[in-house]
Amino acid sequence: MSSGEVRVAVASAALLGESPFWHPRERALFYCDIPDRKLQRFDPASGALVHWDFDTELASCAPCVDGRLLLAMRDGLWRFDPQGGARTLLAEPPYDPAKERFNDGKCDPQGRFWVGTIYEPRDAAKATLHCWVGGKLVKRADNATVGNGLAWSPNGRTLYWSDTKAHTIYAFDFEPASGELSGRRVFARFPIKQDGQSLDSYGGRPDGAAVDAEGCYWVAMFEGQRLLRLSPSGELLREVRLPVRCATMPCFGGADLKTIYITTSREKRPAAELIAQPMAGCVLSLEVDVPGLPVNFAT
């Protein structure tokens, strides 16, 4: 696999960029800026960057077959028309919005939208994973604090979900027809940062992720300044060093799905770090040899 060079794809810095996906019909990258309450759309061919503003945090998004988008926001799950700007509520939040919000979300190969939550006090494993099916949100997993890392294996029979705070990525057996989960197990676990430990010696914690055509799991290591490629058995195959401390999530894009786009964060980072890392908050990109899996559309 070629090493590739990490470069800046979108120079406009987000506060906390998240949930990128490549829209094959539009040949554009969509992603969220959670605290700035924005949905961003970047066209690599023209360099145009446009956005939509909202009145609450937008955590994740997914394309719909009909051209609209699903938006997981603090105040619920919405269907959004980027052409006219209309937003329709599909489901109220299954949590107390004062303490919790939606986080990482995407569609499975069958077109069902899955979304985890983040328990913001971060003092208990109260985050959950829900599936939008049959016109309602159904809880499928729990016992996490910061739900992240959603992805599916190429054959659609393994679902990945992580708890960022616990530094742990889980794998589940996934039943495609019903969306039922079973066999929860640890896929990968990383050392937790110790009190007083320097960030330079800390490897980071698993944030957003994407799977490639060989079934390898690419994960952004928040505060670890790196992107990892793990084999289907959880073995570390590759480490990509990044020019920013806080990568949040990769996705595969471009016509051949061989460009990894990586959202990053600058929110609440020390001033000295931001001076040393001016790319913080920008979207990075990396060319790879093995293509990723295409985005799944909501039906």
Rank of each mutant, 00 (worst) to 15 (best):
S2W: 09
S3I: 11
V10P: 00
A11D: 14
L16K: 01
G17M: 05
G17V: 02
S19C: 11
F21Q: 03
H23I: 10
R25N: 08
R27N: 09
I34E: 00
R37N: 07
L39W: 06
R41E: 10
D43R: 12
D43E: 15
P44F: 10
V50F: 07
H51K: 12
D53Y: 08
F54W: 11
E57G: 09
S60W: 01
L71F: 05
R74T: 14
R74Q: 15
L77F: 09
F80Y: 12
F80I: 14
F80K: 00
G84H: 10
T88H: 13
L90T: 04
E92A: 15
E92S: 14
K99M: 14
R101K: 15
G105C: 04
D108P: 07
P109A: 06
G111C: 12
T117P: 04
E120H: 15
P121H: 12
P121S: 11
R122H: 09
D123P: 06
T128F: 08
H130F: 07
H130D: 09
G135R: 07
G135I: 07
K136M: 13
L137I: 04
R140S: 03
N143P: 02
T145K: 13
G147E: 04
G147K: 10
S153Q: 13
P154G: 10
L159N: 01
D163I: 02
T164V: 02
T164F: 09
I169S: 14
I169M: 12
Y170I: 02
F174G: 02
F174A: 01
E180G: 14
G183C: 04
R184H: 13
V186M: 07
A188N: 13
R189P: 02
R189M: 01
K193E: 11
D195H: 14
D195K: 06
S201W: 07
S201C: 12
S201T: 14
Y202L: 08
Y202N: 14
G203S: 01
R205Y: 15
D207C: 04
V211N: 05
D212W: 03
Y217R: 09
V219Y: 02
M221E: 11
Q225F: 01
L228A: 03
R229S: 09
S231L: 04
G234A: 09
E235N: 05
R238P: 01
V240C: 12
V240H: 11
V240P: 04
V240N: 06
L242Y: 00
T248M: 01
P250K: 10
G253F: 02
L257G: 09
K258S: 14
S265C: 10
R266Y: 04
A271R: 03
A271V: 15
A276D: 06
A276H: 00
M279W: 00
C282W: 00
C282F: 00
L284H: 00
E287V: 12
F297V: 11
F297D: 06
A298N: 02
T299L: 13
